[in-house]
């Protein structure tokens, strides 16, 4: 039973690994980025109550729920991969990070199925302001998922062969912060778009 070291970084004046601090600054800006869309959504909804309710009921609740579960699972495996690399367990690290990556792919596939179903019914961003909001919010969210998968693929690539350096586990924690944030955005988008109408 090894005890986890307290998060002390004497090298840094702030006591926090600077990559991680930078990620938190970025996340703060990201919260405001998505807040803009959600704020606009609230105002538009109050102007078009009936149309928003009608349009929201056309969304596929089942696929939305599955995607929520997929993202939550990916957050778990992301967190577990950080624990694994902190312990220097390369095998588990690779396994959990690969699973996280696969969940990302799964999420994007399901999102594509949803989009193409809407397209085939002639529903596009210009259909109405609900769908304009829907496409822009879920679209930017999906772009964030892809954005997280790029460094993830890089870290997976680096973990081949000699393995990912254990002393760089903060990079995995920082990537994890971003990934959990993307999950967090979906936690709000899902009820906002699919459930509350």
């Amino acid at each position: 039973m090894s005890t986890v070291a307290a998060p002390q970084h004497e090298r840094f004046a702030t006591g926090i690994y600077h990559g991680k601090l930078g990620m938190w600054v970025f996340i703060a800006s990201e919260i405001m980025f998505f807040s803009g869309f959600i704020g606009a959504f609230i105002v538009l909804r109050n102007l078009h109550l009936e149309m928003f309710a009608e349009s929201a009921h056309e969304l596929n609740k089942v696929l939305g729920t599955i995607n929520t579960a997929v993202l939550i699972s990916s957050s778990l495996t992301m967190a577990l991969s950080h624990v694994a690399i902190e312990q220097g367990n390369q095998q588990k690290f690779r396994l959990y990070l690969s699973l996280t990556f696969l969940c990302g792919i799964g999420f994007l596939i399901i999102k594509t199925i949803e989009y193409s179903a809407k397209f085939s019914h002639g529903i596009f961003p210009e259909t109405n302001v609900f769908y304009a909001s829907y496409y822009i919010m879920t679209g930017f969210h999906a772009a964030h998922v892809i954005g997280g998968m790029i460094p993830m693929a890089w870290f997976l690539f680096r973990s081949m062969g000699k393995g990912f350096p254990q002393n760089e586990h903060h990079k995995i924690e920082t990537l994890g912060l971003y990934w959990h944030f993307v999950d967090l955005v979906w936690i709000f988008l899902f009820p906002t778009l699919y459930l509350i109408f």
């Binding site: 090894s2 986890v4 307290a6 998060p7 778990l76 967190a79 577990l80 950080h82 624990v83 924690e173």
Partner: peptide
């Protein structure tokens, strides 16, 4: 990571 927790406890918490 988590001060005062063992890796096993942390994994259980995540689960």
């Amino acid at each position: 990571m988590a001060a005062g927790l063992t890796f096993e406890q942390l994994q259980k918490k995540y689960l």
